[in-house]
């Protein structure tokens, strides 16, 4: 379909979402006085058992919260940042007791690992990368990919952690000579990596060899796309993109997520699904997260909206709570919960 046809076909009906499909499980407040910037869930190992924990990040403090039997959360560890503010948490799958964070002002200047060995609550930070960092992503098999620099002066590097988060191995990938915006792992293909670039290309790497396999130019309708998820099926690549810089159209509002199909052999692509807001909702994409076939976004209106990419429409809308706009939304990696945050440090956990 052309973009226009897809928009018409997938415009959700007014009554097609169910606000009841998000149920509040628990909530807590991070008492930090600085602005809340990110939230994440991860497994943390202590006293011989693994627990699903929550990580919260404010500009000057990152905290680890463990669950109590009463559906409450207890802060057990904090890391403080006085020089450069925290921008985001960078979850690294398959590593226990290790949190990575990106620090910077508008752009990432440092990536640090935050460590805490079992039974020892002393604060430890290790500087992993510094420079003009454009993109970073934690990958399965304890890997972290980052790109430093722009255009021809770009270095794309994979760092592999030991199981305990310690000693690491490094490998370079061939840079694409265009600035990388985001990375995405291809689900089920641990040696494949995608990147989106500032000139609307999706690039594909072989992580084992470091080869740059293909550049795929995607529709110029939306600039600066972010790739949230990718999987390969029947010889085709399916990628879920969001469009934070898309302009609002009068007829369809702002496009939030797009499912794109790519033939990696021919570099041809076609959009198959465009997720827009249900009628009656306004706002643009602020930030979002995709897990399996469910996508969630915070809108500039302060509302969170959820789409089922298989059904092709919005399934839940969560308006601001207690007169406070939402500013963060993340899917938990430890269960099917949605983590929703407000700038003042309130974190709400919903079952979807």
């Amino acid at each position: 379909y052309s973009t226009e046809q897809t928009e018409i076909a997938d415009l959700p009906a007014c009554d097609s979402w169910n606000p009841g499909s998000l149920q509040l499980v628990s909530k807590f407040k991070n008492p930090s006085s600085s602005c809340s910037v990110d939230v994440s869930a991860m497994w943390w190992e202590g006293a011989g058992a693994k627990e699903p924990c929550i990580i919260t990040a404010c500009e000057d403090i990152v905290s680890l919260w463990k669950p109590l039997a009463t559906l409450e959360w207890e802060k057990v560890q904090s890391w403080h940042f006085t020089e450069i503010p925290v921008l985001q948490i960078v979850p690294v799958p398959d590593v226990f007791n290790l949190i990575c964070v990106a620090l910077g002002n508008l752009e990432i200047r440092e990536i640090r690992a935050l460590l805490c060995s079992s039974g020892d609550e002393s604060e430890t930070q290790v500087l992993l990368k510094s420079g003009n960092i454009k993109a970073v992503l934690g990958l399965t098999k304890r890997r972290l990919v980052s790109s430093i620099g722009t255009f021809c002066n770009q270095q794309v590097q994979i760092m592999t952690f030991a199981e305990d988060g310690g000693s690491k191995d490094e490998q370079l990938l061939m840079p694409p000579d265009e600035t990388i915006l985001t990375f995405a792992e291809v689900q089920g293909m641990q040696d494949a990596l995608l990147g989106t670039t500032t000139v609307n290309n999706i690039v594909i790497w072989n992580l084992k060899t470091g080869q740059l396999l293909k550049k795929v130019h995607i529709d110029d309708s939306y600039q600066a796309s972010v790739c949230h998820r990718a999987y390969s099926e029947m010889g085709l690549l399916f990628v879920v993109l969001s469009h934070p810089c898309a302009k609002e159209s009068q007829a369809f509002g702002s496009p939030m997520f797009q499912l794109l199909v790519i033939n990696p052999k021919t570099a041809q692509s076609v959009g198959v699904l465009l997720c827009c807001l249900p009628q009656g909702q306004a706002g643009r994409f602020l930030e979002g997260d995709v897990k399996d076939h469910i996508a969630a976004a915070v809108l500039t209106s302060g509302t969170i909206a959820v789409w089922d990419l298989l059904l092709g429409h919005c399934t839940a809308v969560l308006p601001p709570v207690s007169d406070q706009n939402w500013s963060l939304v993340k899917w938990s990696s430890t269960d099917s919960h949605l983590l929703a945050g407000q700038k003042d440090g309130n974190i709400f956990i919903y079952r979807y």
């Binding site: 061939m174 594909i204 072989n206 060899t209 390969s232 029947m234 010889g235 033939n263 990696p264 076609v270």
Partner: peptide, 23 residues
């Protein structure tokens, strides 16, 4: 949409592109 618009498809695209790309 038809996958015919995307050209010939290969189930082994990753291996084939890896053998064609410069090392």
């Amino acid at each position: 949409c038809s996958t015919a618009d995307l050209g010939p498809i290969s189930l082994n695209w990753f291996e084939e592109l890896s053998s064609e790309a410069p090392p």
